[in-house]
């Protein structure tokens, strides 16, 4: 059993601006734990989490693959989330390098085919396009869920970057809900970028049918 990261340093006031770990976070943690042997066997050097929020998932990954064996990069568009991620890394003794940016833009030229583990629990809730667009501009708590058409507006923009970043032995873990149309995502990633995938975990939480999909070259 890998312990859930200690988040006792975060306060209700933090969660007014930053996504509080919920069922979608925990299914990602469970998928990583289930893949413990695989994750260790690929001997990762670089991990990258997009939209790290509280920093819960990357801290958890760090306790699987080790604090000094991997560089953990975390991005978020929300400045409060970046601070929480950094604090959560310190609290759990996992060095998380938090970067305030959208998706992985500033790393694309230097990390081509170099990232061994990519995590993204994206804003996946279907909303009006306009709402997702506004949330991306405001960069506050709304950006944690507003996903626009089919809940795919933000995730879709990240896919070409995955294809650029993923190392030959790399794995990409994506959280999705049924409305995102998981089989269609899998077909598209195969056809456009030659990435194979598998649903590694699936569960229902309230109204949401959650999946974790794992992609590789």
């Amino acid at each position: 059993m890998i312990p859930t990261p200690d988040l006792s340093h975060l306060r209700p006031a933090d969660y007014e601006h930053v996504y509080e770990p919920a069922e979608d976070t925990f299914i990602l943690l469970d998928a990583l734990e289930q893949d413990e042997e695989l994750l260790k066997s690929i001997q990762p050097r670089v991990a990258l989490e997009i939209g790290s929020g509280s920093g819960c998932a990357s801290s958890f990954l760090g306790s699987i693959t080790g604090p000094s064996s991997v560089l953990y990069l975390c991005t978020d568009i929300n400045t409060h989330a970046c601070s929480c991620t950094q604090a959560t890394g310190r609290q759990n003794k996992i060095p998380l390098d938090s970067i305030h940016t959208s998706l992985s833009h500033p790393f694309l030229s230097r990390l081509r085919h170099s990232v061994d583990i990519i995590l993204f629990n994206p804003p996946y809730v279907p909303t009006h396009q306009e709402e997702a667009f506004t949330a991306q501009t405001e960069r506050d708590i709304g950006g944690a869920w507003a996903g626009g058409a089919d809940g795919m507006q933000v995730t879709e923009r990240f896919f070409p970057q995955v294809a650029e970043l993923l190392s030959p032995r790399g794995r990409f873990y994506l959280v999705a809900v049924a409305q995102n149309d998981v089989p269609a995502i899998q077909r598209r990633m195969r056809a456009q970028y030659g990435l194979d995938s598998e649903i590694v975990l699936k569960r229902r939480a309230g109204r949401e049918h959650l999946s974790v999909v794992r992609f590789q070259r």
């Binding site: 950094q86 390098d97 970067i99």
Partner: peptide, 12 residues
Amino acid sequence: MVRLITHNLLAC
């Protein structure tokens, strides 16, 4: 934290 390992990976 901006460590030099990360600085070495960031481009404009």
